[in-house]
């Protein structure tokens, strides 16, 4: 049972959350202009890293807000949380 820190509600048990997979896969603005391959890449292909993974979670049984987390896929340690639309912590230069 992981402990996940909802940016709105604070730390809660993982069973209150649902998982959304890899974050920052933006929906293409004009899908019609994409080739089958490019569309397929958006739809199916994933980084699936062993180590730090930026991913989406939703506090389904709480405030129902989606947010991002940076979690290690081996140890399950979570090192950062940030809201939708925010700059991922590693890249913001702080």
């Amino acid at each position: 049972m992981l402990e996940i820190e909802c940016p709105w509600c604070g730390a809660c048990d993982q069973s209150e959350f649902s998982y959304g997979g890899e974050a920052h896969i933006a929906r293409p603005k004009t899908p019609a202009d994409l080739s089958d391959q490019e569309w397929g890449d958006y739809l199916f292909n994933r980084e699936n890293p062993k180590g730090w993974h930026r991913e989406q979670w939703c506090h389904t049984a709480g405030c129902r807000r989606w947010f991002n987390a940076v979690r290690d896929t081996v140890t399950c340690r979570i090192k950062a949380y940030y809201r939708m639309g925010a700059v991922p912590p590693e890249e913001d230069g702080r």
Binding site: E22, G40, D41, N45, R46, E47, N48, P49, K50, T73
Partner: peptide
């Protein structure tokens, strides 16, 4: 489970999650 990791050594992205 390590398919994505090995494929990434060849520069490939796969439709997989572990």
């Amino acid at each position: 489970g390590n398919s994505s990791r090995l494929a990434s050594m060849a520069g490939l992205r796969l439709p997989l999650e572990s």
